[in-house]
């Protein structure tokens, strides 16, 4: 039974190769709102399953070490794959998988359930928001592919602004929660195990650079587009502001632990 729980949790809090199932589940969810909901709910289900059916890791020491290696490999592997993703929801899904897998490090350290749930939200919320922005972009362009028709910063300044800030939040940019979540992960591991996390930060930096280059720069060549309205922009900006505020408030608690 413990093993089944562990395997299901490894699907919901994605670890390679079971992460393939997680990604397939999110990709096949109906519409952008469905994909956003899947990104918010599935990892939380994984946490509930782990914490309410424990023990967390029914593995010997060597097994735990291999598990740790798999977690770090998954994080780097998905970040690396996100570099070449040109569709916003794919980029968001792969980047989220890269961050969500780190939750296992908190689980293994015996972190309280509410802190682990908040940690997951640091990756789920921006990924879910990106799914919604990708849906809005698809409505206008017929797809959320970047780099095909040139820069959107001039054509869709509001929507591209929201996408930019949300994507930065997803790759652990300060002052968003992901940054402080990464600080906590760094704190959990011994110094010898930090190099994969440094590599992860480097690849995220590369990934967001490519993403923004394709999103923002160049001269748009296509049909004239209508940007999102002021209300949607205000709501989106408000959510992102609250998200950043949440990161600042909770950062003290995370670091303090």
């Amino acid at each position: 039974m413990e093993w089944i729980v562990l395997l299901i949790s490894a699907v919901l809090l994605p670890i390679f190769p079971l992460s393939l199932i997680f990604n397939r589940l999110v990709a096949t969810a109906p519409g952008p709102w469905g994909r956003a909901l899947a990104l918010l709910v599935l990892p939380q289900l994984g946490i509930l399953l782990l914490y309410h059916t424990g023990p967390f890791l029914p593995l010997p020491v060597l097994g735990q070490r291999i598990w740790l290696m798999m977690v770090l490999f998954t994080a780097v592997f998905y970040a690396f794959r996100a570099v070449s993703a040109r569709e916003i929801s794919v980029w968001s899904r792969l980047s989220a998988s890269s961050g969500l897998t780190l939750t296992w490090l908190l689980v293994a350290s015996g972190s309280p359930v509410h802190l682990t749930q908040l940690f997951v939200l640091a990756w789920s919320v921006p990924a879910a928001l990106l799914m919604i922005w990708a849906g809005l972009l698809s409505q206008r362009m017929g797809g959320a592919y970047l780099g095909l028709r040139g820069g959107l910063a001039t054509e869709l300044p509001r929507l591209s602004g929201l996408i930019t800030v949300t994507a930065l939040a997803l790759v652990a940019t300060p002052v968003f929660p992901g940054f402080f979540a990464m600080l906590q992960v760094f704190h959990l591991l011994s110094l010898s195990w930090l190099w994969p996390l440094l590599l992860l930060l480097m690849i995220w930096g590369w990934s967001i650079g490519k993403f923004l280059q394709d999103l923002l720069f160049g001269i748009y060549q296509g049909e004239p587009l209508t940007d999102i309205g002021g209300t949607v922009t205000s709501v989106g900006a408000g959510v992102l502001f609250l998200f950043a505020l949440f990161g600042l408030v909770w950062s003290g608690l995370w670091i303090g632990n």
Binding site: G151, G209, I219
Partner: peptide, 27 residues
């Protein structure tokens, strides 16, 4: 100047070098 692809490319060069330099400070 987002109309120029070159400014995006060179801004990226700066950003990625800076990120490389961020990592030793983290460690």
């Amino acid at each position: 100047d987002t109309d120029r692809s070159a400014s995006g490319r060179y801004a990226f060069w700066t950003q990625i070098t800076y990120r490389f330099g961020d990592l030793p400070l983290w460690l």
